[in-house]
Amino acid sequence: MADDSSTSAFQAGQTGLIVRIPEAEPAVHGWRERLDPSARAGVPAHVTVLFPFLDESRIDALVHAALANVLGRHPAFDLRFERCRRFPGVLHLVPEPDTRLRQLTEAIANRWPEAPPYGGRFAEIVPHLTIAQGQEGPVLEEIEADLAVRLPFTSHVSSVELIVHDGTKWQERASFPLGE
């Protein structure tokens, strides 16, 4: 989710759209539980499609139908995770190729322009799977060394999940299948 958040920064009613990457869990679960606030708040290993999305109070049957329509036009795809990269204060895995992820984000943001990716804070969409936030170089180097023997892995992406923060934890509210 938002890379500079802590669990207390998440607000009840916030929503996001993610793709789960269950194949990443064996490699990153322990690190994420310790070093990624979104993991401690209940978010599985994932790549964010759009955060924040609409407030939960705005998500009704029409929004669900529109999400199903927009996402169903995009085919399922595979991602490969072979390497780590860093943003300032953040270690993440790089999904390759990331074109389909960018297309999903753009399609949702075009349909709901009031919900730009990351609240409009960043000009470029950079799909990523966050592992650790707010750590110094030696910790990130230790994680990278650990992950070097666990990579690569591949994940098949066939749906996008809508998650909602209930004030304490993130909960999955709906899953939208991608097309065939």
Rank of each mutant, 00 (worst) to 15 (best):
P127F: 01
L91R: 02
P116D: 08
R40W: 01
W31T: 02
S158P: 09
V164H: 15
D166R: 07
D55K: 04
H156L: 08
S6L: 09
M1G: 15
E114G: 15
P88W: 04
R32C: 08
S57A: 13
H46Y: 02
D98L: 09
P177L: 04
Y118F: 03
R100M: 08
T105F: 11
E161D: 15
V149H: 14
R150L: 04
L67Q: 06
G89A: 07
P152M: 11
I18W: 03
L129V: 07
A68R: 00
G42H: 05
L93C: 09
T168Q: 15
V157L: 08
P117K: 08
T130N: 12
S159Y: 02
P52K: 11
T99Y: 09
R173P: 09
V63K: 01
R121V: 00
M1H: 15
E172N: 09
R111V: 02
E106S: 10
E180G: 15
E180V: 14
E142R: 06
G167K: 14
E106C: 09
P117Y: 15
V160Y: 06
W31L: 05
P127D: 08
G134I: 13
E56W: 05
P116M: 12
G13Y: 08
P177I: 04
S57C: 07
Q11H: 15
E82G: 01
H92D: 06
W170D: 06
R32Q: 07
S38L: 09
T130P: 03
R173D: 08
R173S: 10
H74G: 10
L104G: 06
L71P: 02
R80G: 08
T48S: 10
D98K: 08
G134L: 12
F122T: 11
H128A: 12
W31M: 04
D55L: 03
V63G: 02
P152A: 05
D78L: 05
P127H: 07
F153S: 00
P177E: 10
I143Q: 05
A123K: 13
A174R: 05
R111Q: 14
A39Q: 07
V70E: 05
P97S: 07
G13N: 04
E161C: 13
R40V: 00
R102W: 07
P95Q: 04
F176C: 00
A123L: 13
L35C: 11
L151Q: 01
E136Y: 12
A174E: 06
V43S: 10
R58G: 10
D3N: 14
P116Y: 09
C84Q: 09
P75A: 15
L54W: 01
S5Q: 08
S159K: 00
R173Q: 11
L129M: 02
L67E: 00
R73K: 14
D78S: 07
R58E: 00
P26D: 14
V160S: 02
G89P: 01
P88I: 14
V63W: 00
L147C: 10
A27Y: 05
Q133V: 03
I18E: 03
E56A: 10
E25N: 07
E142S: 03
D166W: 13
V70F: 03
F81A: 07
K169M: 14
S175E: 12
R85C: 13
R102D: 04
E136T: 02
P52L: 01
E56Y: 03
A2N: 10
E114S: 09
H29A: 15
A41V: 11
